[in-house]
Each structure stands twice: as structure tokens, then as C-alpha cells.
Amino acid sequence: MLTITNLYKTFNPGTINEKIVLNGLELKLEPADFVTIIGGNGAGKSTVLNMIAGVHFPDEGSITLGGVDITKLPEYVRAKYLGRVFQDPMLGTAADMEIEENLALAYRRGKKRGLSWGITKPEKEQYVELLKTLDLGLETRLTSKVGLLSGGQRQALTLLMSTLKNPKLLLLDEHTAALDPKTARKVLELTEQIITKNSLTALMVTHNMKNAIQYGNRLIMMHEGKIIYDVSGEEKKKLQVSDLLEKFENASGGEFANDRMILA
């Protein structure tokens, strides 16, 4: 489904702030893979997602998605293949627009937009049904401004929007990091439910090792712009947080895991 070959990226090359974020990254995803990505700060987790989404462009290497080389496609063009949920709940939705207007925007992802009405009646009925599946009571608030929703509600809505038109790949960039633990759990459960129901291929960056083990069929650990640990299937199910910490320390040459990961 997704093939990343030999990806390199350096930020601020030639300055004292030079930072090699991706260092020959290789990654291959099968259809319906649900992969969690962990790693310390600056390991390049978010950068990988941003490269796939087209926010940044690689210095070298290529990205192919479903047989299409998307390495050089502008962000808005490749968006038709991708669903994205950001860390910041404010980023995924338009605050001053209504819930149904936001959904209607997402419903037209990958479609040429013209001068027909931005939202139609049958669509609205469909949105009510979809919002019911979130179980957040949003189905009665179709014309509420999204800015009035809580962070968790907005994130759930973004999740729904990003999967409204089945994406070839769903990118989740620490999408529960800004939520309180209870809401985070709810959004994660929802994420899994949606991914399973639609057999989506997904990449989920997280700081939470427990979540990384609990969700998905494959786990990847990144360090200094490379994948240092890749585990899937039965082996992944048996993983413990302590195993991951050990792996991390070994791979990073004894460097201690940062405190956010331990606390998680």
C-alpha cells in the first residue's frame, strides 16, 4: 500500500541549527495495516507523517502510495488519498463553520469543487447517521459552530471527516496527546472502531507506549530518523512496556528514554 524508500531530510542545512531528521528511512505497509509509531522527541515520527502528507518534501528518496508516486505532489493534490488527524484539535476543523459544513468539506475531498451547493439534503441525513456512531450527541447539533465543541469532540469529528471518504492511508499524528486521559481513551477506541470497520491502512504516532502496544497489528520504533525496531503479529501482542524501554535504551546506546515516555 505505502512504500517509502531511502528517505532523507535535513532541516536548516548548512546552519548551526542543522538537524538530520530522516536518515535513509525505509518503510513498507500492507493494505489494512494499522501501524503505531513510537520514539523519542526528534526521532522523526511526525516528520515521516508530514512527508507523506506533503507538508514537507524529502531531500532524497521516494514515497509511493497505492502504486502512485506521490513524492513531489503538492499537499492539496495528494490529500485525495489521505485522511489526517492532527495533534492540535483546532487544526482539523474550521471553527467558525457549522458541523455539517465541516463534514461537507470533507465529503468533497478528492472531488473537483464547483458552483453547486456546498451541502445537500441527502448528505445532511447521512451526516446525522454518521454522527450517531460517535455517540457524543453531535447528531442534534448539525448547525452548531465547531468552535463551540470541546477538544475531544473536535478530534472525534476530525476523525470522522478524515475517514468520510475512505482514504488509502490514515495519518494520525499524536491525535490524543492534547486530550484528557478519559477522552483520549474514547477517541482511541473510536479510531480503532473506524479503522476496523472500513479496513483502513493507518499510521499512528503516539508517545504512549501502552497505546502503541494495545492498538494496531504492527509497532515501529524510530530513533534518529531511522526505524530501529519493527514488530508485528503475535510477537507484538506479547510486548510489555518494559521490553520497549529496553529496546529503546539498547538502540540509542544507553541513552535514557525521555520522561514523557516513562510516565506514559
Binding site: 490529500a79 474550521a94 463553520m97 472531488k111 458552483l115 453547486s116 456546498g118 478524515s162
Partner: peptide, 20 residues
């Protein structure tokens, strides 16, 4: 449709690009 995208652009550019 175009008008809605235009309104959203002033609101949240990142989201509009993510929606293609």
C-alpha cells in the same frame, strides 16, 4: 462548494489543504 472552501480557507488553511 467553492464558496465554502473559501470561507474555510480564512478559518483554517491547514485543514483546507488536508481536505484537498
Amino acid at each position: 462548494e467553492i464558496g465554502c472552501v473559501l470561507r474555510a480557507t480564512g478559518n483554517n488553511e491547514a485543514m483546507v489543504r488536508a481536505q484537498g
